[in-house]
Amino acid sequence: MTDIEDHIREFARVQPTVAGPELARFITAMRRLQDIVVSTDPEASVWDDTAALLEDVCTRLENDVAPAGVSPVGRARNLPGHGHPMAPPWTVADSSPDAVTMQGHFTRYHVGGNNAVHGGVIPLFYDFHFGLVVSAAGRPDSRTAYLHVDYRRVTPIDVPLTARAWIDSVDGRKLFVRATMTDIDGNVLSEANGLMIKLLPHQP
Results as ranks from 00 to 15, higher is better:
132 L>H: 11
109 Y>A: 15
19 A>C: 00
49 D>Q: 08
83 G>Q: 10
180 T>G: 00
6 D>G: 05
188 V>N: 01
167 I>D: 04
105 H>I: 04
31 R>P: 02
33 L>K: 03
25 R>K: 10
42 P>S: 06
16 P>T: 05
185 D>T: 07
184 I>C: 06
81 G>Q: 09
177 V>A: 05
195 L>F: 01
122 I>R: 05
7 H>P: 00
180 T>P: 02
201 P>W: 05
106 F>L: 07
87 A>E: 08
102 M>L: 15
49 D>A: 13
133 V>M: 09
201 P>T: 02
85 P>H: 05
123 P>E: 13
85 P>D: 09
25 R>G: 08
152 R>M: 08
178 R>N: 15
95 S>V: 09
155 T>S: 06
23 L>S: 01
12 A>W: 10
191 E>H: 05
69 G>M: 11
14 V>L: 15
199 L>M: 14
164 R>V: 14
182 T>N: 09
63 N>A: 15
191 E>I: 10
15 Q>S: 11
95 S>C: 07
34 Q>R: 15
175 L>K: 00
46 V>G: 00
199 L>D: 08
29 A>K: 09
159 V>H: 02
104 G>L: 02
169 S>V: 02
167 I>S: 00
34 Q>L: 15
170 V>N: 06
189 L>M: 07
22 E>D: 13
64 D>N: 13
38 V>G: 03
167 I>R: 06
188 V>H: 02
136 A>F: 12
51 A>T: 08
142 S>G: 13
179 A>T: 06
135 S>F: 09
29 A>M: 12
5 E>Q: 11
32 R>K: 11
140 P>G: 12
13 R>K: 12
73 V>I: 15
197 I>R: 14
139 R>Y: 09
66 A>N: 03
149 V>T: 13
62 E>C: 00
118 H>K: 02
105 H>F: 14
59 T>Q: 08
139 R>M: 08
131 G>H: 07
192 A>I: 03
70 V>Y: 06
167 I>W: 01
32 R>H: 14
127 D>Q: 06
15 Q>A: 11
126 Y>L: 15
10 E>M: 13
106 F>C: 08
137 A>I: 01
164 R>H: 10
197 I>W: 04
99 A>K: 13
83 G>I: 07
71 S>L: 11
100 V>S: 09
66 A>Y: 05
117 V>Q: 06
66 A>K: 15
141 D>T: 15
169 S>T: 12
168 D>G: 08
98 D>G: 11
53 L>C: 10
17 T>P: 05
53 L>H: 14
29 A>T: 11
118 H>S: 07
